[in-house]
Simulated assay, not measured.
Amino acid sequence: MSRSVEGPEGQIDLNNVTDLNLNCNENDTFAVVSSVLFVLYLAVKAKKNINKLCNGGSYIIISYYALLWIVTLLNLACSFLQAWQCSPGKEVPWNILSLFTASGMLYLEISLMIFLLNDNYMNAMETLAYTSIVSGIIVSVDALLKAIYVFGFGVPLFNRNVGSSHTVKWGLWIVHTLLLAAAYGFILFVHFSKWREKLPPRPTFYNYVVIMFIFSATTLFACGMAGFGASLGNWLYDFTVLCYHSLYLPFLYLTFLADFFQEEDFLLDNAYYSEMKDAGFFDADWE
């Protein structure tokens, strides 16, 4: 039975409002729990990790660890405030928070790809400067374009409950995910080509790239289906967004930072860190 009330723009279907609220809250629990657990994990490890950074960490690792903390806290705020995307009057703060969080996570992705593609002749400070400049330019342009579409043209890029009615939104996300999938695909191509010696010879790096390539391709497929009005596309896109915000930051930490903070391997695994130094991950000198 349909229920409606008179609003400033005419009749409002209360059943649709209820369904919308359910859609806004159905994934909150998992996102919040996963975000809180990761923050607690970082907090428990913080004292030991900071001590190791002070005693022998490079500027690259220090800056990356600090950025990881910032993005993790932004992502935690997003997970707690998901209902804002469905709350009248909260669209602007939700879009601002989502834009900063998305830009931070994209910066982490882009900077890691640049690390992997750096020429080995670059030292740590050159790598840090080069990576910061290139990643900053790419992310700034991306954030500016998103801000223009969200705040200038009213495209609901960060609202997952608009379905397939906004073709511009899905077109933008298709371009975004296509570029990311192409970048990860290029790294895989280099790995299996004659230029593979330019990349750090660590299997975990390529496991990361393979997983992110598959994830980007899946998201691209979901956006394409959603743009054509397929309900499966909307569901799959919601699932990829949930996985990205819940699992990407822990996955990144375990892949690139966890080994650095391991007590037993910190001084003993010289070959491992030598390879990473050649790739520009660490300072040239260790204490």
Rank of each mutant, 00 (worst) to 15 (best):
G136E: 08
E6G: 01
S103M: 12
C54Q: 13
S165L: 12
K48G: 04
Y248P: 01
L178V: 01
L232F: 15
Q85R: 10
M113W: 06
N27S: 09
S111F: 07
D269L: 01
K52V: 01
A279T: 09
N27A: 12
G171T: 15
D119R: 14
R3V: 05
V241P: 00
E263P: 00
S63R: 06
S216L: 02
G89F: 07
N49S: 15
A143D: 07
Y273E: 03
P93E: 08
G10W: 13
N159G: 04
N120A: 14
N21I: 09
V17L: 04
Y272W: 10
L267H: 14
I187N: 03
L145W: 12
T255I: 11
V150Q: 02
E6T: 15
H166V: 14
F260L: 10
I138Q: 05
P8Q: 04
V39N: 08
K52I: 05
N159W: 08
F100D: 03
S63V: 11
N95E: 07
V150E: 05
L247K: 01
F30H: 08
L172Y: 12
D269W: 11
L257C: 12
D285G: 00
I174K: 02
Y149N: 07
E263R: 03
N118E: 11
G163P: 04
P93C: 10
A284M: 10
L42Y: 07
Y121H: 15
S164V: 07
I62N: 10
N27W: 07
I138G: 01
V17H: 02
P200A: 12
L267M: 13
T101N: 04
V150N: 03
F281W: 14
Q82M: 12
S87P: 00
C78F: 04
V162A: 07
M276L: 15
N27R: 05
A258K: 12
G57S: 04
P156F: 11
E91H: 08
A129V: 15
P88E: 12
K52G: 05
L188W: 13
L20C: 09
F256H: 06
